[in-house]
Design a protein around this nucleic acid. Structure first.
Lengths: 198, 198
DNA sequence: AAGATCTGGTTAACACCGTTATCCAGCCTC
DNA sequence: GAGGCTGGATAACGGTGTTAACCAGATCTT
């Protein structure tokens, strides 16, 4: 065989066209029905095909999920970078973007975060893009960026899982957290250290 | 029938003795094998019984999980209150307790947080105890308590799901977060508002 | 004491799930 | 035209939660 197709398809995305179709359909199914509704059989049905055929294109369900997750992380990074570009108060902007993304795609967010991540199955580098935006927003310190990330992550997680009491004022809690991570900035810290997170 | 057993067993825990045995075994199974290893059949096998018999004592798997979660939340509240009692820097103490509990029971922690919670199936009030401790540690403001909770929750969640890059200094990130939520305290805020969280 | 009821187990079965093995039709290349 | 690759098909295995029907023994009632 010629080596052309191997190279062409593995540059931007490691998936061949048919596999990308399947992943796209899987994502729609996931966002409509939630992680427990995403089954190989139901996915196949939507594609007008029988379940075993899917395995001609994807190794297993984990690979399917990893593909969806990679896609979602890339979109999340896009949203962060957009929120960051030319904004006063980048921290608040990126926090709002984080929450907006999660609320717009709750099932997707759950898929990403309900299990330990299979890092080796992800598209390489897709995690770092989102992280880089956060580090920048927080002033360059990776440790503080991780703390702020954890805050946003926790807020969204608790909100999506209905862990806050019914009457809780989430906007106020967000404000408290953002303020907490911003105020430290007013005291003597060196920012602009600008080293990549890992 | 006499009404005595009904009253006696539903005061402290709503479960009858046999059901409590089952829940105890389920928790062991969960902590050993993780949420995906917790199946009704495997649980029954450990109890020397067939799976359908379990349904004589628990409505369904969700009720089983809710019982485990209630138990775990109560223990978590215990740990928080212990960490809180007579400590300088209660915020750091409670943060450490939060992380320690999660790392000691990672599978349990995942069960609690991987899905939206079925609040009506929980033992009533068990959520509030842990919340109250946090509100107290943070100085009385429920919104700030929720923000701090989200931070701790997010840190643990990201750690357990391996979402931090391999070399990340988690202790430093914890310090950053704790400092962020404590430093606000040094500026003019009214604490000791001491109202219940919900 | 006898009968009814409750308790807590059983087996069989249903509808799903992810996955594998095997087969087969069509197409592309040599 | 022959061979191999591609992308479907069916059948099947072992696993899941769950329900229905049945049944032995204890216990309560009359």
């Amino acid at each position: 065989m010629g080596c052309a197709p191997l190279m062409a398809s593995s540059v931007s995305s490691p998936l061949k066209p048919r596999a990308r179709e399947i992943v796209a359909a899987a994502r729609i199914l996931l966002e409509q029905e939630g992680p427990e509704g995403l089954s190989m059989r139901r996915l196949a049905e939507r594609l007008g095909v029988r379940a075993p055929s899917l395995y001609k294109h994807l190794a297993d369900k984990g690979a399917l999920e990893a593909a969806i997750i990679s896609e979602a992380l890339a979109e999340q990074a896009d949203a962060f970078e957009a929120a960051l570009s030319g904004a006063a108060d980048p921290l608040a902007q990126i926090g709002a973007a984080y929450r907006a993304f999660a609320l717009a795609h709750p099932h997707l967010y759950r898929l990403i975060n309900e299990r330990p991540i299979a890092r080796e199955q992800l598209v390489p580098g897709v995690e770092d893009r989102a992280a880089r935006a956060l580090v920048q927003a927080v002033g360059g310190d990776p440790d503080r960026a991780r703390a702020a990330w954890a805050f946003a992550h926790g807020m969204v997680n608790l909100e999506l899982n209905s862990r806050f009491p019914p009457g809780a004022d989430l906007a106020a809690a967000w404000r408290q957290g953002i303020d907490a991570f911003r105020l430290v900035d007013l005291r003597g810290r060196q920012h602009a250290r600008r080293e990549p997170p890992a």
